[in-house]
């Protein structure tokens, strides 16, 4: 079966299942000739995320899958992605009641009553993979960076653990992994998306409430998503060039 699968992926041009092929590709990248690499083309992609609040049901699948796929600690303060529940009274949108029990890892036990006149919804959160990332700006050594294909990554062998990036992220998307004493954050499942797969959170989202998109691919449905909906990003006043685009984002969301 494995052979069939490889064949299939090759035919659809997705490839890069083989670690051997990946290594070969990287020889070209390291030689400064990425264009000759046979597989993933670094400069042909510009990754973004389409989030649809109207679809999120707060099941927590994304949170669990992220921790599983990326080996994230199960601690209550280590999340690459998490889900928030908002409880907003229409006459007081400035003071939403928000919770995220264990990041939404175990879902959301019912807390509010229907018919109390409030507005209730879930907001999935993750690294916005900003094009002008404040976290990248402040890293003193270049241990966190924006990859040429638009992903904010961490070089765990180079990170000092100074935590300046944690302070600089307006969205609270970074934490220190106590096992490595380096910073950790969403990698947009870089190991998956460079093999033609989607991220773990998108893979398991039953509602399609989050969808990985490639802005450089004219055929990617993210273009329709951005065109057909009223789109907002988190904290636009921070001018971070956030690339997690939300449909149905309420003004009360911080």
């Amino acid at each position: 079966m494995e052979a069939d699968r490889r064949e299939f992926l090759k035919q659809t041009g997705l490839l890069l299942v083989l670690t051997g092929a990946a290594a070969q590709a990287w020889d070209f990248v390291l030689a400064g000739e990425p264009e000759k690499a046979p597989t993933y083309k670094l400069l042909d992609h510009w990754w973004a995320m389409a989030m649809d609040i109207r679809k999120c049901i707060g099941c927590g699948n994304c949170v669990r899958a992220c921790k599983t796929e990326n080996g994230v600690l199960l601690e209550p303060d280590c999340f690459r992605t998490w889900v928030e529940r908002y409880h907003v009274h229409p006459d007081d949108p400035g003071h939403p009641e928000v919770d995220s029990p264990n990041g939404g890892y175990g879902g959301f036990p019912e807390k509010y009553k229907a018919g109390d006149g409030s507005k209730n919804f879930f907001v999935p959160k993750m690294c916005n993979h900003c094009a002008h990332s404040p976290c990248v700006q402040v890293c003193p050594v270049g241990a966190t960076f924006e990859s040429p294909d638009g992903v904010v990554l961490v070089d765990k062998t180079y990170c000092l653990g100074c935590r300046y990036c944690v302070q600089a992220c307006p969205y609270g998307c970074r934490y220190i992994d106590p096992r490595t004493e380096t910073v950790d954050k969403c990698s947009l499942c870089y190991h998956r998306i460079t093999k033609g797969l989607t991220t773990a959170c998108c893979e398991v989202c039953p509602m399609g409430a989050r969808k990985l998109g490639d802005l450089k691919d004219p055929k990617d449905p993210i273009h329709d998503f951005l065109k057909d909906h009223m789109i907002h990003v988190l904290k636009p006043e921070m001018a971070t060039g956030a690339k997690a685009y939300y449909n149905g984002l309420d003004g009360s969301v911080r």
């Binding site: 003193p140 050594v141 653990g161 100074c162 935590r163 300046y164």
Partner: peptide
Amino acid sequence: LHLGHPERSFEMYLTPHTTSAMA
């Protein structure tokens, strides 16, 4: 003492990131 990896602090001299106040 506060750094997660004090042994890497010399990287600030090797590859200082010019946009970082800390570098």
